[in-house]
Amino acid sequence: MKTDKRTIRRTPLILTAFFLLLLLTGINLGEPTRVLEQAKSICLACIGIG
């Protein structure tokens, strides 16, 4: 009987863990508050005015 030798790919899991760490670092530094402040206001440059 054949056995399935497929193994789990680790690269995406390592990358996900790395970016999760970045995300948590950002949260720890309070970056979401700054992002929220920006996202709540109209970016005049983005819409071609400022």
């Binding site: 995406p12 990358l15 996900t16 790395f18 970016f19 999760l20 760490l21 970045l22 995300l23 948590l24 670092t25 950002g26 949260i27 530094l29 309070g30 970056e31 979401p32 700054r34 992002v35």
Partner: peptide, 19 residues
């Protein structure tokens, strides 16, 4: 004194990209 260097944003899109 704030270290807003984009880690939260890059972390968010990085997780999406890696998955």
């Amino acid at each position: 004194g704030n270290y807003y260097i984009g880690t939260f944003v890059v972390g968010s899109i990085g997780i999406l990209g890696a998955t």
